[in-house]
């Protein structure tokens, strides 16, 4: 009975695990990348994430908002307080109303959230051919395939295969579901000029901005994995000790 019981236990644990796997069928076809933040000890490559922020700021943020992220959060990828204050100060945000009851603007502060490119969703749609550019705060978590999908999408633009009719204003993408995407190819070679001298190939830009998007979607990840390693080690030891106690307690029982 014991091996059967163990097999059942394993099966029931694995059962639910199979379900998302079944869903990820499409995602399974995505070419995989090596990410600095993958695996149980992965961390965000600071330099890559900072370059990725530059790509976001200079390219993506023209259309995509990042409403859940604050400038202060950039400290998580190694920007210091001065740099963050300078970055925040480049935008104008509403300061509420002044003492005369008139609305006024002020320079951004680290405590402000990323300024959205459009005042509201309707304005965003109107400026983008009717399509709403999704908010990028948790975009990476919101897509099957995660980082691989974002990277593949950004590098997956191509000419449509012969015979495929493209919708008005649509672009062919190898990895977008349905292959017709409203967003034009956002990244090209040398789209940005990296201050650290890294060559801005389209692959490099995609890799950097994906790392940045992974960070903004899961800013707690490094702390989480650090704490997790400690928790697992501690629990493993405690399991061992507890099992030993159980063995000793039961030593004088015939069962």
């Amino acid at each position: 009975m014991r091996p059967v019981a163990l097999a059942l236990f394993a099966g029931l644990l694995a059962g639910p695990a199979l379900v998302p796997a079944a869903f990820a069928q499409d995602a399974a076809d995505l070419p995989k990348q090596n990410w600095s933040f993958a695996g149980p000890f992965g961390t965000y490559d600071r330099a890559s994430a900072q370059r990725g922020f530059q790509v976001y700021k200079e390219v993506c943020s023209a259309c995509h908002s990042m409403k859940l992220v604050h400038y202060r959060d950039l400290s998580g990828i190694g920007f210091d307080a001065k740099q963050i204050a300078a970055i925040a100060a480049t935008v104008e945000v509403s300061g509420g109303v002044n003492d005369d009851g008139e609305p006024f603007n002020r320079p951004g502060l680290p405590s402000d959230m990323f300024k959205s490119p459009f005042a509201n969703d309707n304005a965003a749609r109107a400026a983008n051919n009717g399509a709403l550019p999704p908010d990028q705060s948790v975009l990476l978590n919101a897509r099957e395939g995660g980082a691989d999908y974002i990277y593949d999408l950004l590098t997956g633009y191509a000419d449509p295969p012969a015979g495929m009719t493209m919708g008005d204003g649509m672009n062919y993408n190898k990895y977008f579901p349905g292959h017709q995407i409203a967003m034009g190819q956002p990244l090209h070679d040398d789209q940005v000029v990296y201050s650290d001298g890294t060559k801005a190939t389209i692959e490099q830009e995609a890799r950097d901005v994906t790392t940045f998007l992974a960070f903004v979607a899961n800013p707690e990840m490094e702390e989480r994995k650090r704490l997790g390693a400690k928790a697992i080690i501690f629990l493993a030891l405690l399991t061992g000790v507890t099992y030993a106690v159980k063995r000793r307690v039961w030593a004088d029982v015939d069962h």
């Binding site: 644990l13 997790g228 928790a231 697992i232 629990l235 493993a236 405690l238 399991t239 507890t242 099992y243 106690v245 159980k246 307690v249 039961w250």
Partner: peptide, 16 residues
């Protein structure tokens, strides 16, 4: 004692 063993294993799965 026996339940404690199970709780530790449960906690490990949850932690993972």
């Amino acid at each position: 004692a026996k339940d404690s063993v199970g709780m530790c294993v449960w906690a490990m799965v949850l932690a993972a």
